[in-house]
């Protein structure tokens, strides 16, 4: 469903993405990991249309999507969250999500009241029902991360891209978040591509991992094999003979 082929992106002299290729199939849940500065977030920006790559191809839902603005990519069914949460701070929590219901797809809802009802159902799914009438600026980080997910889901995606949905959470919140992501994946039948820092959590959640290091894919495959791959271990811990073994 998502095909990333030989994507390159340079910022000045820094090569953030170096011929990155990966695919995500319908309904799959894939973890994207890598050390700081590996290019994970840049890849997300490219996939969602916020950053235009210097080279390569990008196909989603059977369409070439490079050059499409972010809202058009959203309409095709690709939703993303942000690592640094981006709520509409002065709007209520339910309206934050209702915006996604109203504008997330071409044939989206047109009635504000219906959109709010749909938004409430999604808030229930991510366990935010209790705070739906509060303004978004009143939420704590864990709730904001959930709000990001609900708003992304409101656009009716076939692929949900989560950018560090779990960073900065406490241990108890982490377990709830893993549970929520699994539940969303199961109930809404969508594919999930998640960037994550915490390797332990990602191995618990994702049957398949893609590892980025210095803008290159160093491993891609079933989680058990990838975590034992010497190049992956090297990327995280370093190797005696330098990175890449």
């Amino acid at each position: 469903m998502l095909e990333v082929v030989q994507i390159c992106k340079r910022f000045g002299g820094v090569t953030a993405l170096d011929r990155v290729s990966l695919t995500v199939a319908e309904g799959e849940i894939v973890g994207l990991i890598g050390p700081n500065g590996a290019g994970k977030t840049t890849l997300f920006h490219v996939i969602s249309g916020f950053v235009r790559p210097d080279g390569g191809r990008l196909r989603f839902a059977g369409r070439e999507v490079i050059g499409l603005p972010p809202h058009r990519i959203c309409h095709l069914g690709l939703a993303r969250t942000f690592q640094i949460v981006q709520p509409f701070t002065q709007m209520s929590v339910v309206d934050n999500v209702a915006v996604g219901c109203l504008f997330g797809r071409r044939d989206g809802r047109t009635d504000v009241r219906q959109a709010r009802d749909a938004a409430l159902r999604l808030l229930d799914l991510v366990e935010l029902t209790g705070v739906s009438t509060l303004p978004a600026h009143a939420l704590n980080l864990s709730e904001r991360k959930r709000l990001e997910i609900a708003r992304a889901l409101a656009t009716g995606p076939r692929l949900l891209c989560l950018d560090e949905a779990m960073s900065g959470l406490t241990t108890a919140e982490l377990d709830r978040m893993v549970h929520t992501i699994r539940r969303v994946h199961a109930e809404l039948h969508l594919a999930v591509l998640m960037v994550e820092h915490n390797v332990r959590l990602v191995t618990r959640t994702c049957p398949r991992l893609v590892v980025l290091n210095y803008g290159q894919v160093v491993a891609d495959g079933p989680t058990e094999t990838v975590v034992r791959d010497p190049r992956v271990v090297g990327a995280y811990l370093g190797t005696r003979s330098g990175a890449g073994a």
């Binding site: 809202h71 942000f82 997330g104």
Partner: peptide
């Protein structure tokens, strides 16, 4: 940014 990601033109 968030508006664009939520499909707003």
């Amino acid at each position: 940014l968030a508006a664009a990601a939520a499909g707003v033109d």
